[in-house]
Simulated assay, not measured.
Amino acid sequence: MATLELQVLDWGNEPPASLRLIYEEAFPIEERRPWEELFGTEPWEHITWLITLDTIPVGFAVGWELPSAHYFEYLVIDPSHRGQGLGSKVLEILSYKYDNEYPVVLECEPAGYTPMAERRLDFYARHGLHPLPFAYKQPPYGEDLPWVELHLLSNRAMDSCSYEQIRSEIHRLVYKVTE
């Protein structure tokens, strides 16, 4: 039986170049943090896990421990390993690690955006992550990029006050946008 592991990457390390190509193909430029910000030589505030299957790198996940939530910015799995339950297992491991102290939240494109967005929404829904009923825009990752209409998904229902606090933390701490 294959062994799936998540290993924390220290700053200054990065996953194999093949995973960079997968990341760049999986996310449009307006939803993609520059690689150098994810894996540059400067210390970072996020946590990155290299996902290995029998020691072979097959993906990575990027998360932030915010004051009010556990925010996951990316989950990337090599397409040649999709459909084997690896993404489900990764979410299971991360959920166990964070044992519901705070809500888990992430961004996802709205239904109808692309076929990939539909698959992502279905995948996250199977794992108890559902769109919150509040409008959400992802701040731009660069000067020439637009704000992007997305859903903020969570494993918990929340009122508008809790949502607003988490949205504000994501914008301020992850995207460095002051309001």
Rank of each mutant, 00 (worst) to 15 (best):
H70E: 08
F72V: 04
P16M: 11
R167C: 08
L21G: 15
K137W: 08
E65M: 07
W64G: 01
Y96M: 15
I51M: 05
P15I: 05
S168C: 08
Y23W: 12
D10T: 14
L129A: 00
S80T: 15
G12L: 12
W35F: 11
Y23K: 03
R167F: 04
R156P: 07
G83Y: 13
W147P: 10
S18M: 09
V105L: 06
P146Y: 11
L6W: 03
S80A: 15
G142H: 01
L19H: 06
I170E: 00
P133C: 11
F134V: 02
S18D: 14
P79Y: 14
I166A: 07
Y113D: 10
F72T: 03
R156M: 08
E45M: 10
A125R: 10
R82P: 00
E31N: 04
M158Y: 11
G87Y: 12
R20V: 02
G40S: 07
E179M: 08
F72E: 02
R120T: 06
E101A: 08
P110N: 06
P131M: 00
V76G: 06
R126M: 05
N100G: 13
V58F: 06
P43N: 14
S68M: 06
Y136G: 06
P146S: 12
K97L: 14
N100F: 11
A61Q: 03
G59D: 06
W147C: 12
I93M: 09
I77L: 11
E164L: 05
F39I: 07
A2K: 08
T178F: 11
P67F: 12
G59V: 12
Y98K: 08
V105F: 03
Y163A: 00
E30G: 05
E92Q: 13
A157T: 12
G87E: 12
A26M: 13
Y71K: 03
V58R: 03
